[in-house]
Design a protein around this nucleic acid. Structure first.
Lengths: 349, 349
DNA sequence: TTGTATGCGTTATCAG
DNA sequence: CTGATAACGCATACAA
């Protein structure tokens, strides 16, 4: 308790004991008499004593809080990830300190400095689209800060990583479009600085190739800010739509890109999937309620958060050396929606 | 930095100075010679010195971190709120520690104890649906912990509150349904322990009354767990649909209830809005892309977070006594969607 | 201008 | 079994 907090010293004074005796009594040490323990514990209970964790942190050199850096909390995927992280953290008595990079490298570094200087015991991070220089993270890693990467990983840093099978996810998505008869499939993706972008692009390319469709570079569009900047997505979408040989389908390779693509197509009066096929990575809960229900590639976000936090705990609690790292690859899920014919009725609203 | 951290003591030893001199030099105290300052600051810079915030917290009795308790992070409304909170916190050098109650009173208390014992400087909370006893919060408030309530407030505790005009929002929503010709309008709402529920229900009642429609108790349904438990929403939905005189529209008085209602209606093959009108409080980004576009009541979630954090800062930085509290009431927004006729084309997907 | 001593709350080490 | 003391990293009142 921060205000008027009762301390061991207060208890000691009140009970005419020394602080060390009180401390030991509270920790149920065997070298304290039952009687003393009882008295101390009762008094502590009655006065709602709680050890000051700040003091404990200073002493034990651990804060029992971990840092999480993602590009944006208000993103269905990341909020689900955080949900998973928090659930495991909570069960293990850890606090979660959240920070957002908003896809800015500068903010990522500032957050990183801030969190680490706040003595977090570990870090879970999904790097920003803007990040190219990872020396700060490397330094941190070399200083033995437990780090777990999630989704957007940094290959060169050898630590735990939690990802999904991005290649397969993208392959499945693209194949799904091909199966539905689309041939001229564009892709809108995050910058290739991100590991996930490369993998998803590879999956897209492979699916095309396996179906005898040649890859067309003019159909590959990058969004430098991961869909954070709406106008950027708008621009690449316009570029695609203005091509003399317009694509007949789009694969959006990230959550934010998917929703923004959908919105942009709608705004231009382009009917999905009749005028334009669309599939994307998305964790939006309502995808199946869309018009028409939209097939998506879903990442097991909650589970990814859980796994990341569990790995981090293992390192923190030193059950596992940082060198003995592993990469967890979870499966993506291709949710095929709207396969049944929808009844069309007149709408009032 | 946590590992191999360089301390003031290290600098003092290296430079043959005392810790206090170093401390003062680093804080640019006037009582230190320019020369000494320069030497110390250069050395600190070069060795990447950062003061240990844990030690600072212990000394200054403040942690520069604030606690946030919401029912669930992975909820579009709350994730937007947190986004707003974080943005202001970040600009002011504060960390945000997130905790979820998951609509459980027990968890709320545990989180509360945990956060406060972690010496947070302030608290922003949206209470759980299950909470009826606020003695713990009251106690905290009496101990001068800066508290700001957001959305789900506790009337009896006199501190800052940030809410939206729930009465008007619900009134608008209900009126909107009435204007569209619906007459037998049901409401699905959170338990009446929540302030927002009472206000929204009042708005609903008033709209009915003002339009000469009598309130029918069998059309008022409560979800004790705020939509967290899907089966609970399912049950009340079934109760409504199984009425011999079934409602012709539903007003869902909370984010989670709206999406779950929509999903349930879809699952039962009930066409919205033809077979059943539906409107609700919702901050889902995709509402306008739904089939058909769904009108919703939107709360300015991000702004609410910002306002809450600003108020909290004022109290923390003692620019404003806790007794001089205020209640900010932001406007809800009635987003009317799908007013233009939608082209209906055959779907492939 | 600089150094010494103290305290923030806790636990560990040593004495008694 | 219990108590005194030091230490965690820092800032500051007080001494020099």
């Amino acid at each position: 308790m921060k205000f008027e907090a009762i301390t061991i010293k207060d208890i000691a004074k009140a009970l005419g004991l020394s602080t060390s005796t009180v401390s030991r009594a509270l920790r149920d040490s065997h070298e304290i008499s039952q009687e003393t323990k009882r008295i101390v514990q009762e008094y502590a209970e009655k006065n709602n004593y709680h050890p000051n964790p700040i003091a404990l942190s200073l002493k034990e050199r651990r804060s029992r809080s971990i840092g999480v850096i993602v590009c944006e909390i208000a993103n269905s995927y990341f909020s689900q990830v955080i949900n998973g992280i928090e659930s495991i953290a909570y069960n293990n008595g850890y606090n979660v300190i959240i920070a957002q990079s908003r896809e800015s490298f500068e903010r990522e570094i500032l957050n990183l400095q801030y969190l680490t200087s706040r003595s977090i015991d570990g870090l879970i991070i999904s790097v920003s689209t803007e990040s190219k220089n990872f020396s700060y993270l490397k330094e941190l890693h070399e200083k033995k800060m437990p780090i777990v990467f999630i989704d957007r990983i940094v290959d060169e840093i050898e630590t735990h990583k939690v990802i999904t099978d991005n290649f397969k996810g993208a392959y499945d998505a693209t194949s799904h479009l091909i199966e539905r008869g689309y041939r001229r499939i564009a892709v809108i993706t995050n910058p290739h600085t991100l590991s996930i972008s490369k993998e998803r692009l590879a999956g897209y390319n492979a699916a095309l190739k396996d179906n005898g469709i040649s890859v067309n570079e003019e159909l590959v569009k990058y969004c430098q800010h991961g869909g954070m900047v709406y106008s950027e997505v708008q621009n690449v979408m316009n570029e695609l739509l203005d091509l003399e040989n317009r694509p007949d389908a789009i694969f959006a390779a990230a959550d934010k890109l998917t929703t923004n693509s959908l919105r942009l197509l709608k705004a231009r009066g382009i009917n999905v999937p009749v005028d334009m096929g669309l599939i994307g990575f998305s964790n939006i809960d309502l995808a199946e309620l869309l018009n028409p229900p939209m097939s998506v590639i879903r990442q097991p976000a909650f589970e990814m958060g859980e796994v990341a936090m569990k790995l981090l705990l293992q390192v923190i609690e030193s059950k596992r050396p940082v060198t003995d790292f592993e990469t967890k690859v979870l499966a993506t899920e291709l949710l095929i929606r709207g396969s049944t014919k929808e009844k069309k009725k007149q709408m009032i609203n």
